[in-house]
Amino acid sequence: MLYSLARPLLFSLAPERAHELTLSLLKSAHRMRLIRSNIPAKPVTCMGIEFPNPVGLAAGLDKNGAYIDALAALGFGFIEIGTITPRPQAGNPHPRLFRLPDAKAIINRMGFNNEGVDALVEHVKAAKFKGVLGINIGKNADTPVENAVDDYLICLEKVYNYASYITVNISSPNTKNLRSLQSGDALTELLETLKNRQLELAELHQHYVPLVLKVAPDLTPSDIEFIAKQLLQFKIDGLIVTNTTLSREGVETLQHAEEAGGLSGAPVFEKSTACLAAFAAQLQGQIPLIGVGGILSGEQALAKQQAGASLVQIYSGLIYTGPMLIEDCVNTLKAL
């Protein structure tokens, strides 16, 4: 109800300003103990981790891990922070975030704006949250794509002791050539190198942190087949399906549709769910899937599960529906 009252004000502001204000207000409300969550328990074990419920927050909302405790108070089963890069970077020029309210959609070209991995680690250490925390890692924009693995290794090593699982983001459309890492020798080298280092870190620290890959929805059937084989070959622990899309199908006539960047929200639901089902068919339950993209209702969360997801994540749906979306999704999944 409170979000319903606040939404007109937030939508009157520039999207990025509204984003910052929402997080600031949420943090203040949490400090004043004003947040009450009634999310029922629905434990799910995935990747060797017990999740209190299968509905998580997707990466991108809290890039620096500065709002972990406040976000966790909303009742998420898990929180994913990032995408983080080795060095701080400003991201792309403003404006870089656009609402398409008639389609319940967002276009963003943020460009991995973040304070750098060291700042994120300090925020995580300061948080009181003891639940499931995913950390999403990427590369700096000025790192040549042929050297991208070096950036991922830096982040992997620095966050290893602070993450429940680590997501390798090679699917944002807003860092030049990043998506080229989803194919061919580039993907093979990346996965092999990161897997080897993960095993070394597990031995060094005497605990195993799962490694997850996040892919785009704009993949061909042959892309999906190739990625699935690579995941199995290198024993990657999980797959997040999907990131934002470059497609503008369904929003072509709307204001801001021509803006560059990734499209999220309702229009990506069908595409991302079809991609999820295609990976499920290839992987045959050998690697757990996390479904994300266009979830604005519990029924859509259920559709992700029916397409093969063990867990789901939400982000853009929160902007249009509010935090009550979490409870709707958990209750719908719990009903089964």
Rank of each mutant, 00 (worst) to 15 (best):
A126V: 01
F269T: 00
E146P: 00
R17L: 15
N92V: 01
G294L: 08
G285A: 14
A274Y: 07
K130G: 10
P93Y: 03
L231R: 07
P288C: 12
L231F: 12
R96A: 05
A309T: 02
K214H: 11
E146A: 14
S297E: 07
G48F: 08
L34P: 10
H207G: 11
D102H: 14
G308S: 09
I287M: 08
I295M: 05
L199N: 13
L74E: 01
G317H: 05
S171E: 07
E270M: 10
R197P: 10
N243D: 13
I166M: 08
M32P: 00
A90P: 09
K42L: 15
G60P: 13
R179L: 06
T45A: 14
A163G: 08
F226H: 14
Q198A: 14
D150G: 10
N174A: 11
N147F: 14
H205D: 09
H19D: 03
N169S: 14
I224P: 02
T253W: 04
L25F: 13
D237V: 09
N113V: 08
Q286I: 01
D328R: 00
M47S: 08
G184T: 07
A257C: 12
N113H: 06
N108A: 06
R33Y: 05
L74W: 02
K271L: 15
K42S: 14
Q182V: 06
I166W: 06
K125Y: 08
A163D: 09
V168P: 08
A301D: 09
Q233W: 05
V215G: 01
G317E: 05
V121Q: 03
A148D: 14
L254R: 12
I166Q: 08
P52S: 11
P221D: 12
V145R: 07
N243Q: 04
G138A: 04
T253M: 12
L10M: 15
L2M: 13
S4P: 00
P8N: 02
V292E: 03
K104G: 15
P267G: 13
F11R: 02
E225Q: 15
E157W: 02
L23P: 11
V212W: 06
L178S: 06
E80S: 02
F112M: 01
K130I: 02
E299Q: 15
G293H: 13
S183M: 13
G56C: 07
I68H: 02
G317R: 00
K104C: 14
K271Y: 04
P86N: 07
V121H: 02
M47K: 03
A303G: 08
I319C: 00
A186R: 15
Q230T: 08
G184W: 09
A281C: 06
D218M: 03
E146C: 09
I106K: 03
R197Y: 10
L219I: 01
L34V: 04
R248E: 10
L336F: 13
V251E: 06
N177V: 01
G322N: 01
F129D: 05
F98L: 01
A103M: 05
A105K: 06
A18N: 04
S12W: 14
G293T: 13
G138H: 01
H123V: 00
L23S: 10
A66I: 00
V212S: 10
S4W: 03
F98E: 01
V330I: 02
L97M: 14
N196Y: 11
N114D: 04
G111L: 03
T83E: 03
A266C: 11
L153H: 06
F51A: 05
Y3E: 04
N331M: 10
G265N: 12
L219R: 00
R36N: 14
